[in-house]
Design a protein around this nucleic acid. Sequence first.
DNA 1: CGTCCGCATTGATCAGGATCAATTACAGAC
DNA 2: GTCTGTAATTGATCCTGATCAATGCGGACG
Lengths: 215, 215
Amino acid sequence: MSICACLASDELALLDALAHPVTFGAKETLFVQGQPAEAVYNLTGGAVRLYKLLPDGRRQIVGFALPGDFLGLAMRDAFGFSADAIETVTACAFPRSAYSALVDAKPHLLRRLHDYATHELTLAQEQMLLLGRRNAEERLVCFLLTMRERWARLGRSTTTIELPMSRQDIADFLGLTIETVSRTFSKLARNRKILIVPDGVRLLDLEGMTSLAAA
Amino acid sequence: MSICACLASDELALLDALAHPVTFGAKETLFVQGQPAEAVYNLTGGAVRLYKLLPDGRRQIVGFALPGDFLGLAMRDAFGFSADAIETVTACAFPRSAYSALVDAKPHLLRRLHDYATHELTLAQEQMLLLGRRNAEERLVCFLLTMRERWARLGRSTTTIELPMSRQDIADFLGLTIETVSRTFSKLARNRKILIVPDGVRLLDLEGMTSLAAA
DNA sequence: CGTCCGCATTGATCAGGATCAATTACAGAC
DNA sequence: GTCTGTAATTGATCCTGATCAATGCGGACG
């Protein structure tokens, strides 16, 4: 789903001219909800959490961005959510105005972007199903299988799943508490579905996990 | 946010040539999840529920479509969710192929569509926050205020909110059970926040509702 | 090497919403 | 008018996941 994959080389050069590489350290903020969006980003390395906050501090993570992901769709003038780096992050930043002009000038880039947006929308609807109707175990299993899928696309291992985010992040993504997430991890490990390893899990029973997720 | 509002009259004529009006009776199916999408729809009358099902029958409604809404974004080849008419529905149907060709030919229509898609994505993320982190009362109040907003855009009353969908539909949208929805309605009515009327509610304390939703 | 600190795990108890069950309201059929 | 079926409300009880609390673990640093 990389945005740039559809461009001819001359257009890529154009894009290159607009882009400037940026780096963020762990826990650094890329942007905050409501802030006018001066730039959009294409992530090249590291992981980012995207989240919304309630006034009383409750947090819902609406997604994790991995290398290749595009940040800045869901905003017209201001960002609809906050984003910060989970680990050291590298990205290409595009000034909003130049980006906007380029999109207007290159319909097939826009088409690509639109396909990306509808893909994101489909994921969001899948997440609504998860948050509204699945129990804790199903949520965690779905999450692990989704991460597996995403890492696989990036050419990473399909058996050992990297989890750069904290338990709290996972909880805030799945609409649970950190304790429930931890207990559910332990339960999956006890049932020989997964093996918990530093910064990730190893999937021991993909079969069983898949049927848990489907149910 | 109507898709067609950006078109010049000659383009509208083109669109008209593609469109054919369709009607669905209450509970009739517009399309089902996974079915290849032969047509996209622009709703002109009535309300539609959009939902995903789990194999065991659990249902999550991912949105309600009202007049002016566009159906068929979140699919490349197949629909990502099912849709059926809540009440008698009228719509313009566009064959998928013709629609696709027109979009390719008219970049500013595509631009419009993309803006619509990002708007939908923003709503979906707001709904994730609701499903993941809000309690039953907050969910219902948010829902009522959102419906108020949407009806207002369509020029309807801002004090008496029409609710064409059933309690079960509301429950499946808010990730609750019908009993909890019913109890929460009763509680809001008891506290003089709303008055329950046939096919809707009257908002008695917009102030109070707004602060409940913000919390 | 020990202390500290943030994160994760585990246990005990609680509560919000689910589930089970009964009743009510109401629209349509006749 | 009564009958019937569906949707909604209300009550009683249960259970999943939240909350409160304690402990464990590992890396950074003096």
